[in-house]
Every structure is written in structure tokens, then in C-alpha cells.
Design a protein around this nucleic acid. Structure first.
Lengths: 234, 234
DNA sequence: TCAAAAGTGTTGATTATACACCCATGT
DNA sequence: ACATGGGTGTATAATCAACACTTTTGA
């Protein structure tokens, strides 16, 4: 829209535009969410997603990246727009729409200091506290989209360290889908995609025998995408 | 509320929130899009999506419904949020984010007068003119999402009249996917879903023999959904 | 009678699912 | 030596994909 004239109504009162970040992480076979305790009134002390107003001179997605950097120290992170929440009374007192974006981070990469400085905390999905406004709804929607996306994109890899084992990858998908998967079928399928490179190292952190580490091959993944494969697991 | 002209200084200090509607229709086996010719400067005479600023006292989705009603006369139409476009320079001179929403309408329901009054026109997908700003991108994204959605929801039914034939339904899916489908396999699959009710009438508008009319059974569809079926066609 | 679209089944290929035992190793 | 998680193959069922002819009827 680029009109020449504008309703006075729009000028007098202000429409606020915010972005809220749904930050997922994965640790010890659990899918987690970063929430933080509001330090300012109103709703001080309540749990909330991490957000900010969008600045006039910044792109929407950059605003999300900024919030993420401020709270976790991470840059260039996988982040995707979820949807925009715009009920007129979603924020009592203000007219504020919020563009929700979700990020997937490798949970051992984030800066613990920054997170603590912001009063933030990792909560397990399924054990979330009540969040302010429509933030619980946002999380639920994000989870839904995460499930959807995981079918068609190897999105889950964003949540794992660079080197990971197949059992770890399986645990991640189990956390996202919230059900158990068959280990043989999972391994078969994920290896058949040809996007994993087996390394010579083993990870012994979760068994005596140890499991081989793999890394993700982005080139092969690109080829897969153009060929139109899907990442659905049974 | 009478519009008033404002100067650029004021405009640049403010974040505008608009919504743009991607209105799909289906007619004569063609998927079409409703676009309109701008009547105001800047970009007067250019083709554009139909949009509006979001009012302070209206929900985001209501704004979309309002735009739709103003241009087509239709109410209570299937409409879904696509995503929000928020590049800082997407609209030169203004800082305006736009929430794109897409609608599917039965093309013989709309009001021709209203459409003409707004200088709007139906264009075939695949034969679209150049649209202002990032509107072509919006359409492309909407088409992509339409394809995705059509896999999991019988979304296409919104585009057909209440009574329709199976060949019509197939033509719709072919228009969405932009490829031909096998008539036998299509019929087999769609009937196996148990969401169509065969009527005793035939439609003879496209063949001498005539094709049986069907209608959609929303109850059975609800059952399907909870059972987790998908509407993917090969 | 013929042109044009509607309607109908089968088969082979592919993919999904279910399932149980041995391996390697640290304690 | 044993407990623990890692790793492997096969057989059945389900689904997908490809394919051609007959029917109906208005012109």
C-alpha cells in the first residue's frame, strides 16, 4: 500500500508493531523453549516470549535476529516467520500487532550469561508455564508448524550440534513428533537420503560402545530439494 | 473518518500496517486472481493486489474480510493469513508492513458491479501482469501455500460451486498443481475419502453425456481430519 | 454416425511397517 | 560377566503409478 492520503484516525493513535521470538532448543533428548521473566510493568514478573518493537529502519526478519542476538548472543541463526497476531484486544491498553518468528538453536551454543542477564530460562515443551497474552498460542502454533516443516525439510538439523549421532537425531524427531520411532526404519530412511556424512569419531557420552558421529551435507541436501524429496518419518 | 493529506515528514516517522488480499477464483478450468488498477498516485494506473490499512479498532483478519467485501461483495469467505512482508524499503517513501491474506472464492458468486467499480479484473494465474511493490512475490508465495495446503485439506472445495462434478474438481487440482492428473486415479482417491455425496443430477454443460454432480460432506471431512488423512494427489 | 467427455479395473513397482537378535565396551 | 545402548535385515502389507477401452448423447 502506498496511498497519498491517510486517515486521521491512523495518525492520532498509534499502531504498534512488535515481533516475538519462539526460541526452540534441544538438549538431553528434550525439546525446550526459551522464555523470559518480564522486568517491566505491566505484567512484570510474568513469563513471556522474548520480543521487541520493530524499528522503523529495520527489516522485520532483522528485528527477530536482533532480539535473538540480544538474548542468546547468537547470530545468523535459522529463523522463520510463523504468523502475525493481530486481534485488536490481544494486548490490553495498546493496539499492538505482533509478528511471531521462531528460531531453532543448538542449545550448547547459546550464551549462558546473556540468557541469565535477561532473566530467561529454558523450559521443556510440555512443561511450559503460563505465558502472557497470546504467547502460549504462539508456541502451540510454532510447534505445529515445526512438525509440518520437519516433514519436508531437514529442519531438525538446525537444533543439533554440528556433529551428531543417529540416535540423537532420532531423539530429536521423537521430541518434535512426540512419539517413538522405530530405530531401524529411522536409520534406514535417514541414511537413504544421502545427506549424512559418517565420520570416524564416536560419541561415547550416552553409551559404552559409543555411536558414530555424522555431519550434515548441505550440498547433497540441495540436490534432494530440487529432486523434491520429503523428510517424513513413520 | 475523512482522509487528509499528511506530509512526508510525518509519514516517515510512522509505521503503517496494511493488509493485502490475494483473491483466488476458479472459472472454466482456470485458476484466476483478482487484481486491481490503482486509482491514486503514486503508481496510479499500475496493477496491484487489493489492500487497505488495518484500522486501529479492527482485528487483522477482519480487515481482510472487509477488503474482500468491499471489492467482491462477499462475506464469510474462506481466508487465511499468508505471511507478513516487512522489508524496510518494500514501499518507497513509507515504512509500511503488509500482512498478506489469501482468499478462495467461488467465482460465480462475486459481484460483478463491485469488482468493476473498483477497477478490478480477473487474471489467469500464469498470465499475470506485473504488480506493484512485492505483490508478485506475495502471489507466488500464496500459490505455493495453496499447493501445500491442498495436500492436507480439501481446501479446493472452497473454489467450487456447491454442486460440482468430479472432472471439475480434477481440473481445479490440476490448476493448482499446474500439471495433469490421471482421471482414474484421481476419481479413485477422491471417492475413497468418503467426503463426497453423489447427487441424482447431472451437469451437461461440458459434455453431451453429462457428469454426475456431487456435494461436499463436511461432517465426514471432520472425521477424516481427526483420523489424520491427507489429500495429496499423484 | 461421430465427436467429445464420462466413467471404469488391473497389474507391477515402490514404499511403509513390524519385528528380534548380536555387538562393543566400560564398569 | 553383565548391563547398556548401538547397530543390522527381512517379510508382509499398503499405496502409488501407469495404462485403454466402453458408454452416453447431442449435433
Amino acid at each position: 500500500m502506498a496511498p497519498e492520503t491517510v486517515d486521521l484516525y491512523q495518525i492520532k493513535e498509534k499502531m504498534y508493531v512488535a515481533t516475538d521470538c519462539i526460541i526452540f532448543g534441544f538438549h538431553q533428548s528434550k525439546l525446550k523453549l526459551l522464555v523470559f521473566k518480564r522486568k517491566v510493568s505491566p505484567l512484570e514478573g510474568e513469563w513471556s516470549l522474548i520480543g521487541s518493537f520493530v524499528r522503523l529502519d529495520e527489516d522485520l526478519d532483522i528485528a527477530g535476529q536482533r532480539v535473538l542476538k540480544e538474548t542468546t548472543g547468537l547470530e545468523n541463526v535459522f529463523m522463520q516467520q510463523l504468523r502475525t497476531y493481530g486481534k485488536k484486544d490481544r494486548d490490553p491498553g495498546y493496539r499492538c500487532i505482533s509478528v511471531a518468528q521462531y528460531a531453532l538453536i543448538r542449545i550448547d551454543d547459546y550464551s549462558e550469561e546473556l540468557v541469565e542477564k535477561h532473566g530467561a530460562k529454558w523450559y521443556e515443551i510440555g512443561d511450559l508455564p503460563e505465558l502472557i497474552l497470546d504467547h502460549n498460542q504462539m508456541v502451540q502454533d510454532a510447534l505445529e508448524q515445526l512438525k509440518q516443516n520437519a516433514r519436508y525439510k531437514p529442519i531438525g538439523f538446525e537444533l543439533l550440534p554440528e556433529k551428531f549421532t543417529i540416535p540423537q537425531l532420532q531423539a530429536l524427531y521423537e521430541a518434535i513428533y512426540q512419539r517413538e520411532l522405530d530405530a531401524r526404519n529411522f536409520r534406514k530412511k535417514v541414511l537413504s537420503l544421502n545427506v549424512l556424512e559418517k565420520l570416524d569419531e564416536k560419541d561415547k557420552s550416552s553409551s559404552k560402545r559409543g555411536a558414530f558421529l555424522y555431519k550434515f551435507n548441505y550440498e547433497n541436501y540441495q540436490n534432494l530439494l530440487t529432486a523434491g524429496y520429503n523428510f517424513e518419518f513413520s
